[in-house]
Amino acid sequence: MSEGKILDIAHISFLDMIKIMITMSGAASAKGALIRNAIKTADKIAEVDYPTFDDYLAAIENASNPITMIEGKATHSGNFVFGLQNCPFGPSIKNYTQVFEKLPEGFADFTAEFNKQSNITDQYRVGEGAGVSPFCSVHQPMRSAFAEKIMIGGKKIKIFQLGCKSGSGKKGFAEKWIAESGVSRDVVDKILDNHMCCYYLKVLA
């Protein structure tokens, strides 16, 4: 006998809790709370220094790279531009929408809030149009914060979020970070054809 649809309660609670946070204290405050929490997660990981960029890529392949551990394997498309095949929040969204058909109300406002210019999104080079759902406000800053714990050849690295794609296929581009990274918008667009997320890794001098 089939068990039918079983909800992952952790996923459901998380999505509904975002909605409650928006209702109780507004989208800006909810966004801040999620970003703060995401950044704090990076405090829990140890610093790592890869001798070369190839070693960094190898760590992605063997899933020992800290960023890979949170989001899965990213594909290096050349020139330090990466594409991520699957959104780490994909299962949560699928789980929720399978039962409740649509995501909770207020998520659009939250996403717009994340894409607005702010000191914190500037600091971590996220948002600015690259947010396509509230989950981006967790995922993107967390990845950037994790990157601050990683070095390549003794040099610090920075992540620039370039674009993202929603489950419905709508692409979001962070024009500000695309311009600052020097990566062509066309490149980002093409990567998003086959990926859900696109970012640039800069090794600092």
Binding site: G26, A28, K31, G32, I35, S118, N119, I120
Partner: peptide, 8 residues
């Protein structure tokens, strides 16, 4: 404070 709770 910025509305997202980050200190200016």
């Amino acid at each position: 404070v910025a509305r997202d709770g980050f200190l200016l």
